[in-house]
């Protein structure tokens, strides 16, 4: 009998691991579909990454196709289009960061100076609106607005004395600028909410003290508001650096055309065209994997930095 007890005790560490699942069987039942979803729709496609290392033929299937090592990646780097996509991604991302990152901060600072709450609310309501429209709708609005034939913007330029209409969306000279400005236009209002919240959490006694000391309004912004929201700004900047390879797939796929691939074809749109327009699965998977691996390292790295600085991270 003692030996039986002993055996039971020896078993227990392994058993205890799973006893919890029996004890909380109802919770297991609830979690089961969730885990099943992540395995099927997230982890199985991760297994599909092997396509990037194979001479994938649809007829042979993933397992039947031959291994080719890094040949697909070599092929990718041999094409001028992939290099072009990397270059465009980085240029558009950096431009968006330079213009699109400070814009909501400035908007929040400006909104904070508005003392008529009705006026403020109207501005906020209007400026948040474009955030809720899809890039398809935005593309429709922009292509009309910027049309060289009958668009309002070219109408304005003409009345200001410009002779030739500007083909904003159809010419490599203007395309990136148009992409960056339209992205800011769509997102600036919504982006300001976070900073407005940060501003509203500033201790009002700081301002009262500053007023007693005779600080002017610009001085209060410069020495109280901005320093107080600097932690938020820092975190947002670091986190947005992590997404530098995401130059805006939805936007580009709906705004670009073959006329501006030279300046507007980013990695994501290239992956889409190679994979689902030209049906070159292996090349598309290889390029996608390349982007995902670097993107993963960037996000993990920037997230770690953000966490170390402030304790705030994505997870």
């Amino acid at each position: 009998m003692t030996s039986a007890l002993k055996a039971k005790r020896q078993l227990s560490p392994a058993l205890r691991e799973f006893k919890g699942y029996i004890k909380y069987w109802d919770l297991c039942l609830m979690l089961l579909p969730v885990i099943a979803y992540f395995i099927i729709f997230k982890y199985i496609p991760m297994g599909g990454i092997v396509i990037a290392f194979k001479d994938f033929k649809l007829g042979l299937g993933v397992s039947g196709s031959e291994w080719v090592g890094l040949a697909n990646f070599v092929d990718a780097f041999r094409t001028r289009f992939f290099i072009r996509a990397i270059r465009n991604t980085l240029i558009i991302s950096v431009l968006k960061l330079c213009v699109g990152f400070p814009a909501p901060i400035i908007l929040a600072l400006l909104l904070n100076e508005v003392r008529h709450s009705g006026y403020k609310r109207v501005i906020q309501t209007i400026s948040y609106l474009p955030h809720f429209l899809s890039w398809i709708i935005m593309a429709g609005i922009l292509s009309q607005l910027l049309s060289p034939n009958n668009g309002a913007v070219n109408g304005l330029l003409k009345s200001l004395g410009r002779k030739d209409p500007v083909p904003f969306l159809l010419d490599n000279t203007y395309f990136r600028g148009t992409v960056v400005i339209s992205d800011v236009w769509k997102g600036v209002g919504w982006g300001s909410i976070l900073y407005l919240a940060a501003i509203s959490s500033i201790d009002p006694t700081l301002y009262e003290a500053a007023i007693c000391d005779g600080a002017t309004r610009p001085q209060r912004v410069r020495y109280i508001t901005i320093p107080c929201i600097l932690p938020t700004i820092t975190i947002m900047l670091i986190l947005s650096l992590g997404g530098i390879l995401d130059a805006g797939f939805d936007q580009l796929l709906n705004l670009y055309s073959s006329a501006v691939y030279e300046t507007g074809d980013i990695i994501d749109t290239y992956v889409y065209r190679v994979g689902l327009v030209d049906w070159n699965y292996k090349l598309s998977t290889a390029i996608g994997l390349f982007k995902n691996v670097i993107g993963f390292m960037l996000v993990a790295g920037t997230n770690a930095v953000a966490k170390a600085i402030s304790g705030i991270g994505i997870w």
Partner: peptide, 29 residues
């Protein structure tokens, strides 16, 4: 907090936020 291996299951899910199989593997699935 008492759910067994909670951290493991959470990480399994959170990881998908940062890495994915990509367009073609998902499309084929």
């Amino acid at each position: 907090k008492y759910f067994p291996h909670r951290t493991f299951w959470t990480l399994l899910i959170v990881f998908t936020m940062f890495f994915s199989g990509g367009l073609i593997p998902t499309f084929l699935l």
